[in-house]
Each structure stands twice: as structure tokens, then as C-alpha cells.
Design a protein around this nucleic acid. Structure first.
Lengths: 360, 360
DNA sequence: TTGTACGCGTTATCAG
DNA sequence: CTGATAACGCGTACAA
């Protein structure tokens, strides 16, 4: 066993082997050297031989830039089994992360990931803070009141926040436009007059904003929305099932259309209604929000508002890196568009092209 | 604008403010100091005041340990639109990543994420190498031939590799047991005699191993498996659709049961069969592998082999960190168990409990 | 073009 | 228990 063999090589080892100074090695490796000098070749050869890779920590320390951005999502290490059931809900987050990773890679940054439990995540955030140049916070990982103090220590971008925040930039989708599209389609096209909005967690800006928008537009188009307090969900399908069951037991007549705060909730509604013997969309129409991949595979396929999840992540990273590199962003509140994906659950005939051919 | 204000504070700032030396600050912050000394309180106060967070790069450099592990998955930054269609396939990977993150957090490590395109990812891997203490490579991100040289520069754990590799530890699932369960259920319980195995990419160890196992067990149980070359898929539902279409056009009779290399493939098969007027499981039974969240929402719900994706990630991280910290792992080939999730697509009656109540 | 020497912010060693 | 000081590995002025 070569336990005491040459540990991971440093720039000094390379320099020695190539017969030059470390400055030359550094220059060659960073392209600040004449293209094809004699020593350049020797350096490259030595690098190859030794399998040298620059130590990132030293690099960061020297340059004062880590080239790493951190992203924090809600719902970290919970009980393994418990979360499995609601795993679909994580999907949307995962798409965002993928988009963020792609964006970071484009700018030669790396992405550091951290899941934050529902409790106090400031400890986690602090630990991450030391390792990164900037932070992306997904919805609900930190009280908005705690964001501002954080933001004056390190660049922060909020994903799906409420909008106006002190130091931080916010990236979010146009909830209002999405809900207008839903209201328009369900009220004007399908003629529904009594809708319900099944919300997410009441503390979430997205849920609040979607509820408000739906009420505004549905009302404007001549329909009415049931009291929100009867339809308080929590983003999960399990929560949605409970709400629908409660409504069924209350004896009140169901609305003819249930607009859900997200797809996960819509899945729960679908199951609960079918289980109770109702037909969707025959008896009740259902819509979602997000367009997670499973949406088009449900039966009936879910009519939902499509969020550009991947792009959301990419845009957030771009904005963040701009700030990190000293470029101040033009806008502190970036809003991305959405569009309605009409499928079967709203009452429209299912599209003739099969689901696996659907393109964006 | 406080542009020239006190930049991010260092340990020197804290020391000065507390009226002690940096050594004392360091000790207090790392708990190597008497619990309640006088200066400790002053240090803590100064830290709080200044919002001091230790610079991770300096820490890493000093300690020779970055406390970061990297994970590389296949399918990085591709065309945004293209990938959306196959996004379900990413889901399995995402679960692994989540498990890995949870595992890392438990050991006070951070997770760095990188998506590698199908091309030569050695550049990406190199760049990551400098920033982490160890690497987790998901299936197919690097030729197995390239793993060994990498593994002697930095600890590496392979996820879903072929098993025996030189320097690296491998974590994978028991494909053989999974396929045995499928073969047993479909042949012995349901009486199928002619099966097909719709494969993943032929270069993937997982695909090869699953194919071999299915053939072995199905044969042993008295059934036969169609020639594999007629059923060569690529892990995607799009690829599966093409294969099924080709089979349909060939005029050959379909087998009575199609065993798919993964769930994504099974989704494609389901769609293609239904589109062509066949009934599942009436005319043809279908099974998957993975148990991605969407599986239980399909109609019919998919019978599939459940992989403990999250646990896979967590175990990989544990093993990797052990190596990083100098503990040599007992086993270099860690195999996790799987179990068959019987639902509707195999011909069994759908379970009476609704899908949203299914527990593990 | 090339080499020397210093700084980046911590931890850790070794005197007091 | 505390404080000065040497690493850690790299980039980069500055001098040659």
C-alpha cells in the first residue's frame, strides 16, 4: 500500500517536475502565457504526468471568489419513509435545481445543495454561507424577516417570494396571469359559476397570491368562489384528500370546479373525488398549477398552469452571479410568464396526440 | 451606499473587537475552550455583532479537508425544451440526490451537484475534483475505464455500476432479486409463457444485469424470453414507443408480457399499446423497474420493482465519507435490496386502498 | 518571458 | 488559558 506516496500533487510539484517556477505553472494553466512557449509544453506534460488538479480552496482563498453558489430548498432530511408518499411534490423543486445547475455551469460556477427542514434553518444557512459566494432561497425556507439581515452579508436571490424585499432580488412566476387564464377558461369557456380554490400553506406568498388572483378574476367574469377557509390545503395530496373529505361530510353541495394551488393538491382531489364516486370532469372539473411531469399521465390528464421551472432556476442563478460579480441587476423583481396547458380534467376533450408526443 | 463599508468580517475583526487574539477566537468558535470563560462571552458577542461567518475556503485550506462531496449525474444542461418530455426519467436521479444530501448533512458535509452531458465529461469532473473531497458518480457518467485512474487521485463511489471496479466502491441494487421476483410473479402466478424484456441503453450495467437475470429466472420457471435484439430501448418512454411500434409493424405476435428495464420505458409501452388498441393488462401485461412516484398514478397502476433510491444516495455518501476520513470500508460492493410492488398492470386486481394511502 | 515573495483567512503548534 | 506565528496552495504584483 502506497500510503505515504506522493499525496495529491501541488503546484510546487508540477513546477519542480517541469523545471520552472510556480508562477509559470499558474500562468500556463490560466492561459496568461504565450500560446506555445517551450516551457508551456513542459508544464502541460508535468500536469498530465502527475494528474495535477488545482486545489479549489487555495484558489478561492487567493482570489476571494469561491465560484460556488448555494441553493436551499425546503423539506430536507425528514423520515425516509414518510416523504416517499409526497415525493411528487419535490419534483417541481428538482426541476428548478436542474435549471440552476445548468445556469451555474454556463458561468463556470458550481452548485451547492442544501435541504432545510421545516424548523429553524438559520444554522444550516450560516454553515452554507461560508462556503459560497451567493445564496438562492426557495419558497418558505426562511422567514422573510430573516432574509434582509442575511442579504447584507451575502448576495441573496429569492425564488417565489412575495416580491418586494429589501436587499434581495426575487424571481417568481406570474401567478396573476396564470389564474386569470384558469378563470377565463373555466368560467367563460366552460360556464362554471361556483368555484373553489384549494390553497397551499397559508403562509406561502405563492398560495396567497394565487388565491387572490383567482377570486379577482373569477368574480370579474361573473362567477363566485367559495369561502377560502373551507378549502385550506397544505400543498400535499394527502392534505387535499382531507379537505375534500371534510367538504363531502359537511353536506354542502360541491362546487362544479375545484381550482388547486398546485398539481400535487390536484392529484389528491382527483383521487378523493373518484373514490367518493364522483366523475371528473363530469361532476366536478379540476385544475392544477405547476405542470409537473406526472400531470399529463393522470386520468383524466390534468389541465394546469405550466411554470417554467427549469428556467426559473436558471434565471435565478444568472441574476445571482451578476450580483456576485459586481454587476447590479436592472430589476429586483423578475417575473416569468406561465401558460395554461389544457388537457382533460377541465372538461375539454383529451387531445388527439398522445401524451408522449406533447411538445412544449 | 456603503460600498466601502466593512467587507465581510474576518477572524481578525472579531479578535480586535473582543480584545483578544485570533487564536482565542478560533478556539471559542470550535469549542476547544473552557465552557464559560470571560473572553468566550466577549468573542461570542463580537461574532454576533459583526455577523461573522468563517471563510470556508480558508478553513479548507488550513485543515486539508473541504467537507464537500461532489455528485455527478448524467443528463446535464441539454436543450431546455427537449428534456422536459423525459423529465420523469430524471426523477429517480433526483431521489438519489436527495438521499445523498441528507446523508451528507448528517455528517456535516455539503453536497456539490454537477450534471454531465452525454459527451466527454472528464473536464467537468476535473473541475469538480478540485473543489471536493470525494466523488459520487451515477450510472453512465464516465466510462468505467476512466474511473480507476480517477479513483487513485480522489475517493470515488460508483452508483449502479457493474460491481467489481478497481479502486472505487460500488453501491447498487439487487437487480437479480428484482428480476427473480418479476419472473416468479408473471410466470408462476400469472402463467405467462412468452415474455419480452425491453432494455435500457445496452452499455449500462444495470440494463445488462437486469436482462440477464430476467432471462435466467424466466427460463428456469418454464417460460421463454423473446430475442433481446428486437427489444432494445434506451431508458426513455420515447424510445419504448418506437420499439413497440416496430414490433407491431413487424407482424410478429406480441408476447403476453413485457418486462421493462425501468418505469420510464414502461410508461412508453403503456401509451403505445393503448394507442394501438391493446388493453393492459388484458392483452399484454407490463412491468417496470424503479417505482418512480408517477408509477402508482398511471392507469393501470404500474407493477414494478421498487428501488430504495433515497437510501441508495445516503449509503453512497456514507461510504464515501468513510473513505475520505480514512476509514476503509468493509465491502467494496454494496448491494441494496428491492421489492416488488404489485399493482394493476400485471393483471392483479387493483388494490382496494387508494393510491394516496399506500405506505412503504 | 521568467522567478521571488507576499497575501488571502483559518487552524494548529508551541512558548509563555 | 492565552498569544505570536508557521503552515495550507494558489494567484499575482514586482523585479529581473
Amino acid at each position: 500500500m502506497d500510503t505515504n506516496g506522493p499525496a495529491t500533487p501541488t503546484i510546487y510539484d508540477v513546477a519542480k517536475r517541469a523545471g520552472v517556477s510556480i508562477a509559470t505553472v499558474s500562468r500556463v494553466l490560466n492561459g496568461l502565457s504565450g500560446r506555445r512557449s517551450v516551457s508551456a509544453d513542459k508544464v502541460l506534460a508535468a500536469v498530465e504526468d502527475l494528474g495535477f488538479v488545482p486545489n479549489g480552496a487555495a484558489r478561492s482563498l487567493s482570489q476571494g471568489l469561491k465560484r460556488v453558489i448555494g441553493i436551499v430548498y425546503a423539506g430536507g432530511p425528514a423520515t425516509d419513509d414518510l416523504l416517499d408518499i409526497e415525493e411528487e411534490s419535490l419534483l417541481y423543486t428538482d426541476s428548478i435545481v436542474r435549471g440552476a445547475e445548468a445556469g451555474a455551469q454556463r458561468r463556470d460556477f458550481s452548485l451547492m445543495l442544501t435541504g432545510a427542514g421545516p424548523g429553524d434553518s438559520s444554522g444550516l444557512v450560516d454553515r452554507l454561507t461560508g462556503k459560497v459566494d451567493g445564496l438562492i432561497l426557495l419558497d418558505q425556507v426562511l422567514d422573510e424577516s430573516r432574509v434582509s439581515p442575511l442579504a447584507e452579508r451575502i448576495p441573496v436571490v429569492l425564488l417565489a417570494g412575495s416580491g418586494r424585499l429589501d436587499g434581495a432580488v426575487t424571481v417568481r412566476v406570474d401567478n396573476s396571469a396564470g389564474m386569470k387564464a384558469v378563470a377565463s377558461h373555466m368560467v367563460k369557456d366552460h360556464g362554471h359559476r361556483r368555484l373553489a380554490f384549494l390553497s397551499g400553506l397559508s403562509a406561502s406568498p405563492d398560495s396567497v397570491s394565487r388565491a387572490r388572483s383567482l377570486v379577482r378574476w373569477a368574480t370579474k367574469f361573473g362567477a363566485e368562489v367559495e369561502p377560502l377557509e373551507h378549502w385550506a390545503g397544505d400543498w400535499t395530496s394527502g392534505g387535499a384528500v382531507k379537505v375534500v373529505s371534510a367538504r363531502l361530510e359537511s353536506g354542502d353541495p360541491l362546487p362544479t370546479c375545484i381550482v388547486c394551488a398546485n398539481d400535487q393538491t390536484a392529484i389528491g382531489v382527483l383521487h378523493a373525488l373518484v373514490h367518493a364516486g364522483y366523475s371528473v370532469p363530469g361532476d366536478v372539473a379540476v385544475t392544477g398549477f405547476d405542470d409537473i411531469p406526472v400531470a399529463r399521465h393522470l386520468s383524466p390528464a390534468l389541465t394546469t398552469v405550466r411554470q417554467p421551472a427549469r428556467q426559473l432556476g436558471a434565471v435565478a442563478v444568472e441574476a445571482l452571479i451578476d450580483i456576485v460579480e459586481g454587476r447590479h441587476p436592472e430589476r429586483h423583481d423578475i417575473v416569468l410568464g406561465v401558460d395554461l396547458q389544457v388537457r382533460g380534467s377541465c372538461g375539454c376533450p383529451p387531445p388527439t396526440i398522445p401524451a408522449w408526443q406533447v411538445e412544449v
